[in-house]
């Protein structure tokens, strides 16, 4: 399905451009050039943020956060196996995939914890990375309360993963 969407969309845009007498090649290169400039402008931000996030991930701080959170998550009925996934999910997409893989090696994908982990992976995003990238792409330095609703959505996602799996599979 996705194999079809992208090429067809590109072809339709170019075809429609031709019909509307747009100089498609010149406009394409002009758009590409302006985004190349954007890309070079955001590279320093990417280096700074990814270094900070990379060091944080390697330091074991995540495990400490997970330990700290476990009494709360036990209370909410959140499976222990999924805790590392919930902690790494907002920070690193590739990290979350690695943790998800290791969870599925330990528990069956059709078990409760396996399903909760799958729903978490499918319904949340790499929040910190997205905020760093999007704010880094602009000259925004004061991010006000951006992080609060974003993390609220993540947290709600973890809770509702447990609730929906309970509701639909038991």
């Amino acid at each position: 399905m996705t194999d079809l969407i992208i090429p067809v969309f590109i072809a339709l845009v170019i075809l429609y451009g031709c019909l509307k007498k747009v100089k498609v090649f010149e406009e394409f290169t002009a758009g590409a050039k302006s985004n190349l400039r954007t890309g070079i402008e955001i590279l320093p931000t990417l280096i700074a943020m990814l270094t900070a996030i990379g060091m944080f991930k390697a330091s074991g701080a995540m495990d400490i956060i997970a330990d700290f959170l476990s009494p709360i998550t036990d209370f909410l009925g959140f499976p222990d196996e999924c805790l590392p996934l919930a902690v790494i999910r907002p920070v690193s997409g590739s990290g979350a995939l690695a943790v998800f893989e290791s969870i599925l090696e330990d528990v069956h994908p059709d078990s409760f914890a396996g399903r909760v982990a799958s729903v978490i992976l499918g319904s949340t995003e790499t929040t910190f990375y997205t905020i760093a990238l999007y704010c880094g792409a602009t000259n925004i330095r004061k991010t006000r309360h951006t992080l609060v609703p974003a993390l609220t959505a993540d947290f709600a996602g973890f809770i509702f993963s447990v609730l929906t799996v309970r509701l639909f599979f038991s």
């Binding site: 406009e27 394409f28 290169t29 758009g31 590409a32 050039k33 302006s34 985004n35 190349l36």
Partner: peptide, 9 residues
Amino acid sequence: CMWGGIMQI
């Protein structure tokens, strides 16, 4: 660059 170009068209 690619999507910037398509977006511009």
